[in-house]
Structures are given as structure tokens and as C-alpha cells.
Amino acid sequence: MGKPEGGDATVETAPGNGTAAPRPAVDRPWHAPGGDGRRTRAVRVAVSGALIGATVLAVLLVPPLFPLDQQAVDLTAKLEPPSWAHPFGTDEVGRDVLLRCVYGMRVSLLVGVVAALVASGIGLAVGCAAGALGGRADRLTMRLVDTFTAVPHLLMGIFIVAMFRPGIWPVIASVGLTHWVSTARIVRAEVLSLRARPFVDAAISGGASRLRVAARHLVPGVLPQAGLAAVLMVPHAIWHESALSFLGLGIPAHEASLGTMINGARGSLVTGEWWPTLFPGLFIVVPTLALAGLAGAWRERINPRRRSELVL
């Protein structure tokens, strides 16, 4: 009696060690409804982590080992299907798709990470300022943010890229400067909720200045949320870089980027050569899904605050 459901003969409890009794091993498939999702989550984290790890490793190790001449073409070997020499085949001017995918991924990751950092930094600053100042300053800031949101961000991104010569930095600027809005909103909401807690009253009563309350009690409280927003931003930024490059506005056309590769190989898709578009596409989809999976697991870790509060 009183045993948890499913605590059957497979459970071995060490004698005299009641506190550290293991969770009962419940015999049901890991995907069954009613499970606590731990297994699923562990599998998802492991697979996502492995994929991200492999991508980062490839991006770091391949360029020094296999230098790529971005301008070199070999028209005798154009549009070769996947083979041992070219595992992902060659494109319409005879360049190896695999090698260019890795180089393109390097650009995408760089853009994704830096742009996400820029966007989250701006969002954190704006959200904290609005939330911590409150009142009229908050309302004014958030109306400005609303106005900013009203303009489609791809359009604004294109406008920013168009002002500069093509290259990686204008792309980073165009993604970073347009994607801080959601982070700013999340951070502001969190700051507003923290600001109303009695521990802020206690700090004020203890002589803390506005700046100190913000720096010591509010900003550290929103950092997990802001960090999560930053990680979730990386896949989004990668897609934006690809979209801009696909439109011919991002990375210069001859340089390897997942977007420029898909754009260049578009024509050969109709003649049945699927490999120069499919593989760059997979290189966009798989790592971004893996990154989103990791970020999702992180969100589940930091958000179920309620469960621990029930224990109190």
C-alpha cells in the first residue's frame, strides 16, 4: 500500500537507504502518454546536442584543413550527382557542394550568433529601461516599440542591407537591429513583475538607488529569460541570413552561403538536379531545428517554477 503506481519487482531499493530510493522504473514505452517526458527530453537534448556539436566541429575544423577558393570553377565537372569524390555532388559550375555547405554554415553560424547577441543586448537594454523606469517613460518607449513592430522586419532588414556594400557585417546589422523587439517585450514584462515584489520595497527601504535596484535585483532576475530569447534567436537569424542571401542582398554571390547556394542552383532544380539545392537546405533546417530543440529543453528547465513552489 502507498507505493507509487508501477513500483513493481523491477525496483531494487538499497536496504537502509530510504531517502535515496530511485524513481520506480515504470515499464512503458518512452513516448507513451502519461509519461513524465524525461526520456523524450533526454533523447531530444542528446540528439540536438550531437547535431550542434558536429556542426560546430565541422565549421571549425574543415576550413583550415580544406581551403576553398571561392572563385574557382571547374566546368568539366558541373552538376555531378553525389559520389565518393563529391558526397553531396557538384553545382552548376563544378564546385563541391559539401565543402561549400560547410563554408556557408560557417557564415550562417557567425551571423546567427553575433546578430542574436546584438538583438538580445538591445532588447535587454530597452526592456529593462522601460520596465524599471515605469510610468510615462515606459508607455512612451513601448509605443515606439509598437511603431517599430508595425514595419515588416524583413523589409527593414532589406533597407539596412541595401545601404551598404554586400558583406557579412551589413547582414548582421540588418538582423540584429530589427529583431530586438520580442526580447524587449519579454524583458519588460518580467521586469514589471519583479518590480512589484516586496523585495524591491525592502531594497528601497534599505537605501538602494534606482540604478542599484535595477542592476542588482531586476537585471539578474531577467537574464535567464533574455538568454533563452537569445538562443531562440540564433535559428531565426540564420534563416534571415539565408533569405537575404537568396534575394541577392546579403553575402556576395560568389561567396559560399547557404542562401546564395540555393539561389544559384534554383535553375538546375527544374532539370532534375536536386542535390545542389537539397543539401544546403538540409544544412539550414537540421542545425536550426537542433538549436531550437536545445533551447526548448532549456525553457522547460527554467520555466516550471511552479513545480518547485508546490514543494514549498
Binding site: 515584489r197 523585495f199 525592502a202 531594497a203
Partner: peptide
Amino acid sequence: PRLAADPR
């Protein structure tokens, strides 16, 4: 006290 103390 739970609410009056910064949990960090």
C-alpha cells in the same frame, strides 16, 4: 519573507 527576499 519569501517575497521580501531576492532569491538570488
